[in-house]
Design a protein around this nucleic acid. Structure first.
Length: 479
RNA sequence: GCCCCCAUCGUCUAAUGGCCAGGACAUCAGUUUCUCAAGCUGAAAAUACCGGUUCGAAUCCGGUUGGGGGCACCA
């Protein structure tokens, strides 16, 4: 059995989005699960729309996701000679011909057909031009395109997921395969590359089903073996239509910038149209490779919803090693905080160890990398709050003040080298009779300025004894 | 308009003729708890509709409806 060779063949006309990432992932998974080869091909035949920046974005996004390729990137713009050779061969075999009809002419006819509710089929005006005529027109430098002759019949082809699909070539007419000998169109260039790169399985979006018969015709004309076609169900946006920039579809790069983790995106996207055999949905790239199979891809389009992506991101973020997280976090606001707070007070920044603890607390409460630090921002900036925030239930502020003073007194007794959350908690737990909140709540507000925060004893440990006492005093003075 | 594809909880999906249609996210409730988050327990929630085949249909067939894709000198 010949080994599997697949490709991901994006056109660099936009950034990589979730749909493209899924197509890339499925190709990658098929290759890896079969010990095959995964090729990255950049389909940049459209010079108008292809941009280097998009190519860069696609490559960077794939790298970031951890989807690696074995061959490429191969750019179609660098293989023009190959396509030219094939175009010539098709013409020589009288399977394709030069068409000198002007674009305006064709467009006009199409409009007419469409308004009459008919299909715009090319009538074959240039199909049987005499060699002399062709030569004349070429000498006059008349612009032309290359059309493929289509048989007057219905052909059926097999899609791996959908089975036999019928297609009537009468409804298409002789279609254009190249703008000229050096400028092939998608149908041609894509087919030629798939053939010469020995592609065994074409996994691509469902939007390509209708071009498949055209490509199959080329395979037949050239007596090439067809690959297996697997048209993936589309990933639909919340508006229930194909993902596009137009509809505000976010790029992988956008998700990265928003603080999403590659493993979350991968896990999320893998489940769009595919499902492992078991109910285990938290699944790593390695596990996907181990359990991937084409049979388990389904046919119906998937509308993605963000809440599950958020869930995955929270899940992976919580389990991420804080040491690794340090490298991934955006610390640029720290400069500002440092100036505002630490420098001004002539204090030292947190030790590496304490930063790790801060991240530990933040990652439990964050959805993305970006809001990790903001959930614990009180560590880094001056904060203020209304004294009413110190109030717990209906207990009046005088009592709260008393409690804070008691906390302060007790904490002052703890030696600095034993100022740990466990010890702090132990001390506070000796203070209350039945309602912890009378002590913990005002302490939290004193240390964070917020009504929601990680446990106050954790905050105290990180802040250190001096800072903690200072913040408690500040709270006392407010009342 | 024409051609093609698709159809299970709100969303992603499992169940490839046969046990109460299972899981995940989201939602709600309880539990835990000083708050938040996380965790744990539970609830509500679906086979689009109409026929047919069959002892038996989410599953096979036909139609209806709905959704999507395509109809470029884009990919």
């Amino acid at each position: 059995m010949s080994s599997v060779r697949v490709r991901f063949a994006p056109s660099p006309t936009g950034k990589l989005h979730l749909g493209g990432a899924r197509t890339a992932l499925f190709n990658y998974l098929l290759a890896k699960s079969q010990r095959g080869v995964f090729i990255l091909r950049i389909e940049d035949t459209d010079k108008e729309r292809s941009k280097k920046e998009f190519e860069d974005d696609i490559i960077e996004s794939l790298n970031w996701l951890g989807i690696s390729w074995d061959e490429g990137p191969v750019r179609q713009s660098e293989r023009i000679d190959l396509y030219q050779k094939v175009i010539k061969e098709l013409i020589n075999k009288n399977l394709a011909y030069l068409c000198f009809c002007s674009k305006e002419e064709i467009d006009l006819r199409r409009q007419e057909s469409l308004t009459r509710g008919q299909l715009p089929v090319y009538p074959g005006t240039c199909k049987n031009l005499e060699p002399k005529e062709i030569e004349e027109k070429l000498n006059k430098r008349t612009p032309y395109v290359v059309r493929l002759k289509v048989p007057d019949k219905i052909i059926t082809f097999k899609d791996y997921l959908r089975g036999e699909i019928k297609y009537d070539f009468k409804k298409v007419g002789d279609f254009i395969i190249a703008k000229n000998e050096k400028e092939p169109l998608y149908v041609l260039a894509n087919t030629v590359d798939d053939h010469y790169q020995g592609i065994t399985h074409v996994l691509r979006g469902e939007e390509f089903v209708s071009t498949t018969p055209k490509q199959i015709l080329i395979y037949k004309y050239l007596e090439w073996t067809e690959p297996i076609f697997v048209h993936l169900p589309l990933v639909l946006g919340p508006e229930r239509s194909k993902l596009s920039k137009r509809q505000g579809a976010k790029s992988i790069d956008d998700y990265r910038k928003e603080g999403f983790l590659p493993e979350a995106i991968l896990n999320f996207v893998a489940l769009l149209g595919w499902h492992p055999k078991t109910d285990k949905e938290i699944i790593s790239l390695e596990e996907m490779i181990a359990s991937f199979s084409l049979e388990r891809i389904n046919k119906s389009p998937a509308i993605f919803n963000n809440s599950k992506l958020y869930f995955f991101n929270r899940y992976y973020l919580r389990r991420k090693n804080s040491q690794d997280l340090i490298q991934m976090l955006d610390f640029s606001p720290w400069g500002q905080w440092e100036k505002d707070y630490f420098r001004a007070n002539n204090e030292v920044l947190y030790s590496q160890e304490k930063i790790l603890k801060i991240i530990d607390l933040g990652k439990e409460r964050a959805t993305t990398l970006n809001d990790l630090l903001t959930t614990v921002d009180f560590f880094f900036k001056k904060f203020d709050y209304d004294k009413d925030l110190l109030m717990w239930k209906n207990i009046d502020l005088d009592k709260i003040k008393l409690n804070l003073e008691r906390i302060k007194k007790e904490l002052e007794k703890i030696p600095e080298n034993n100022f740990f959350s466990l010890k702090i908690k132990e001390v506070i737990d000796h203070l209350y009779f039945d309602d912890k909140g009378e002590y913990y709540w005002p302490l939290r507000v004193a240390l964070s300025g917020k009504e929601n925060s990680p446990p106050p004893q954790e905050l105290a440990e990180i802040l250190g004894k001096v800072k903690t006492i200072e913040l408690i005093e500040k709270a006392i003075n407010k009342i």
